[in-house]
Amino acid sequence: MKLAPLWVKLSAAAFVICAASPVFAEKAGIGWQEGIAAKSGKAKTMAELAKMYDSSSCIDCHQDTHNDWNKSIHARSIFGTSRTAATFKTAVINGLMEWPYSGVKKPEDVKVEHLMGCAKCHLPQLADAEDSVAKEIIATIDNWQDALKKKDNAKATAEADKLKGLNINCLICHNRNAITHKWTDGYPQAGVVYGSKDGDHPSDAFPKMKTSPIMSESIQCGQCHGLGPNMELDNPTQCCTSYGSYLWAYTAEGGSETCQDCHMKKSKLGHNMQSYRDPGMAKAAVEFKAEARAFHWRDGATIKPKAVVKVEMVNHAGHSIPDG
């Protein structure tokens, strides 16, 4: 029997090693390999993805902040008020399955790339998962809707809770999405909490703190709260447009406050970031004045009394109301 040359054996070995390592394509920058996703490898299930970005240990020391966050929609970003989950499904049925070149004929055909139109903001970490997770999310939404139709409340709650288990938690804003300009400031590193300080952090899972140069800047929120069409996608989507309005209609006109100034600090809401559903935010955002009077108006010889109501509204928010 003829032996294979040594270089063939080495090539085969190299191929096996590559195939077994985390499935991430090479990126141009330096240091991305030290990030949470690159170190973990792509998640294969929703549970694995939740575990990859598990921030439950933060609660030990940041209970109040967690409680605030838990009241916000960030805590259930793919479920929302239930309409968000329903819209994920609608995007598949009325969008992907209708478009001739999407490659989706049935919900089971959905891949991560298909869902990023929603997940770019509602679950950015989905980009760190395999297609099986995209399929599982759609199947879970299916199960939840099916349980609702059958009035099986226990199952509906369980499926909804599974969806709520994936969200915009501490690690999304304070790690994964804490740095926008990665070639300038470096890629977010596993084990680091990004915020306003540098130093040690008393946590086994996250032993370091580093300053994020954008944590108090509007661009931090603008990563998700939208410029307009998401052109980087093969089939652009558009949802929130607040950041576009903020840039071109607010700061361009001299506005100087940040998203965090109004939604976290002045409102005293902290991590319970709200908009109009918080009475204080709604009142602060729109000044509404009206006055009315009545008189005998005369249309030629005919008296036609009328009331005149004059309304003045000023939007004091840093973006158009509403947006979308």
Binding site: T90, A91, A249, M313, I321
Partner: peptide, 26 residues
């Protein structure tokens, strides 16, 4: 839906920092 929205045809909302007036004759 967001999956088919791209662009804005018009905006009748409240722009930031600008007074918007409405008048109703009843």
């Amino acid at each position: 839906g967001p999956y088919e929205k791209s662009g804005i045809i018009e905006d009748t909302g409240l722009p930031p920092g600008k007074e918007v007036r409405e008048r109703f004759d009843i």
